Computed example of a mutant assay.
Amino acid sequence: MLKVEKMTGGYLNIPVLKDLSFEVADGELVGLIGLNGAGKSTTIKEIIGLLTPYQGDISIDDVTLSRDKVAYRRKIGFIPETPSLYEELTLREHLETVAMAYDIPVKTALERAQSLLELFRLADKLDWFPVNFSKGMKQKVMITCAFIVEPRLLIVDEPFLGLDPVAINDLTDLLNKEKAKGTSILMSTHVLDSAEKMCDRFVILHQGQVCAQGTLADLRQDFGQMDASLNDIYMVLTKEV
């Protein structure tokens, strides 16, 4: 379980987030929703440890960065919005690097990756360098690297950008399987129609604050219209704040 408690943070002398509190339970997919500049990326950076909160606590299964930095980071799998690969490493070497970083035997990591590589039609491209990959293929490499660590918390930032319809369907199936295994999933997205179908709950950010959170039924009740879409609710909430 991910717990964010009364977190305030941002960049040096530039506070972005104000008193954020939310949770992602085991086996739950929570959508992190917000306009550009709402604080979604900053929230993710605080959780994965690229930024340090000014105040508040972040824990995964009751482990914090301050208590056990290595154990905390090994619990996280991260799929960024923009693929980031090492140009001098092949696909195989990327998998091996991830294995070493997470202290996973290389053989085990490659075995875990095999079904994913076949799913994403990358199994015959292990010796390819990133220069040979399309943007969508690079994103599939990032997805594979995140899944082979078997994370307790999976953070997915705009997961469907650059993916073809078949890959979107494949990734959706993978996320559902991770939920069934008990993985906590935090997904940041602008695609509200997809989020409405996939997510169990939502955390809506506006100007660095949580302006609403809960299931779609909870939000509809607060909104006062039981047939409102997530997009309808979001538009009203962000106008009112």
Rank of each mutant, 00 (worst) to 15 (best):
G39R: 00
E87G: 08
T52V: 11
L29Y: 04
A25T: 00
A25V: 00
A25G: 11
L85P: 01
E46M: 14
R73S: 10
S21E: 15
G34V: 00
G39E: 05
G56K: 07
A38K: 00
S21K: 13
L29T: 05
E81H: 07
I79D: 06
R74H: 14
G27R: 13
N36A: 12
E88K: 07
L50V: 13
F78D: 01
D62W: 00
G77N: 04
Y72F: 12
L65G: 04
A71S: 14
T43F: 11
V70F: 09
L51C: 13
E87R: 08
A25K: 14
I47T: 01
S59F: 09
K69T: 09
L89A: 07
L89E: 06
Y86I: 11
R73Y: 05
G37H: 12
T52E: 15
I44C: 08
E87T: 08
L50W: 15
E23W: 02
I76N: 04
Y72I: 06
I60D: 05
L35F: 03
V24P: 07
T52S: 14
N36P: 00
L32R: 11
E23H: 13
G34D: 01
L89P: 03
I76Y: 14
I60Q: 03
L35E: 08
K69E: 15
E28R: 12
K75L: 15
